[in-house]
Design a protein around this nucleic acid. Structure first.
Lengths: 213, 213
DNA sequence: GCCGTGCTTTGACAAGTGTCAAGATTTTCT
DNA sequence: AGAAAATCTTGACACTTGTCAAAGCACGGC
């Protein structure tokens, strides 16, 4: 094979790879929408396909398996969530500002992205029964823990007081608060009561995570 | 109809009611076992029946619906869980004793009843997608909140310091800790690391829930 | 004895599932 | 343009699911 033909073939291969990856992402996006709406237990591949521009056969062209698809979805979900609060961390000039900014960001997430987060909790629970997802779920959970820890560590820094908890405990605590707020919001929340108390609770708990004075 | 016959019929009716309720409980128990093992998404009525002494048709004799069955299961689950830590509350003679007892009890629950609790989280998440369970789930969640609050309130009493958090926040925090420990334990826990750090985390967090001095 | 009533099994049903393969269609290269 | 490859649709398959009805079984009352 000539060098030119070789290079041409490589270029084609790369383009195909790109297109392939792009369509995978596109289908995964449709899958995430569907899963977020219906939940893991009630979502079929045909539901997902109907939520995209394609027919149900395509899914097996781009994903080997249902598990493969959902695993990919989980990974894609991760990329969106993990940097959620970094902006607040970067721009806050004082401990109080960070505290208020974080509380507000949490509450905003609750209101805006509730379906995505209930899906996340759903899939995380699935990993307790089905080992297929466990690896990816754990990886994401660790990323989220680090995300939370960046907030807590920076808060301690700004407040000039050492953190009083471990990263694991900090993450677990905020996660619990968020999940509880999600439940209450789903239970019929007249005008953001859940969001407001999530905000207040988070600010208070963050305060108690450093050793003041 | 004579009085005797009347009474006899009533007695029979009552006996039937009792037997009916008893069998319902029996089947619900089998259902709980199965659900705890397989998870909500992968449990069928035939799976449940196979885990009992009966055939799959019986389920529709004692429960009108799959939802009916699972709702009943959830309620039955509640009765077992809600008084879990009351003994520690009743017998602890000092704040430190309550603190250690509660931590130990949480850790023991994690080790002994992990399947049941992953099922609880699974069903609670289901309620975020399916409104059928929502009412019962919320009711149980509130009972659990009260259970946790009995611990915190008693701890504050023994420590002679007022509580620093609301019941909702206290429950959310411990729930988050427990769930995180459950995840880590499921991820392959060599010899109770998750249980130990749950215990330590819970004791520390409980400490920070009162306004000392 | 027999009848009736409650309990249980069995088998069937329609709908829905993941999976796959054969063909139609589009894109790409020469 | 025409061939080759990639992409997409369609329809089918084997299987599972919730549901239900008909038939079999047990047992207490007359």
């Amino acid at each position: 094979m000539s060098e030119v033909a070789q290079r041409s073939r490589e270029r084609i291969a790369r383009r195909q790879v790109d297109k392939f990856a792009e369509r995978r992402a596109q289908l995964a996006e449709a899958a995430l929408q569907t899963l977020a709406e219906l939940g893991y237990a009630r979502t079929s591949l045909r539901d997902i396909a109907q939520n995209s521009a394609f027919s149900h056969g395509v899914l097996h062209y781009y994903f080997s398996d249902k598990v493969d698809l959902i695993t990919f979805c989980v990974r894609q979900c991760k990329a969106e969530c993990v940097t959620r609060y970094d902006h607040v961390v970067a721009t806050a000039g004082s401990a109080g500002e960070l505290q208020r900014g974080f509380g507000a960001a949490l509450a905003a997430t609750l209101v805006q992205d509730a379906p995505m987060h209930r899906l996340w909790y759903d899939l995380r629970n699935q990993s307790l029964f089905d080992a297929s997802f466990r690896g990816d779920v754990l990886e994401i959970d660790q990323s989220l823990e680090q995300m939370i820890w960046r907030v807590v560590a920076r808060f301690a820094e700004l407040a000039e007081a050492p953190p009083a908890v471990s990263p694991g405990v900090a993450y677990a605590v905020f996660d619990g608060l968020f999940q509880q707020a999600l439940l209450r919001q789903a239970a019929g929340d007249d005008g953001g009561t859940a969001a407001a108390s999530l905000r207040a609770g988070a600010e208070h708990v963050l305060e108690s995570m450093i050793l003041r004075r």
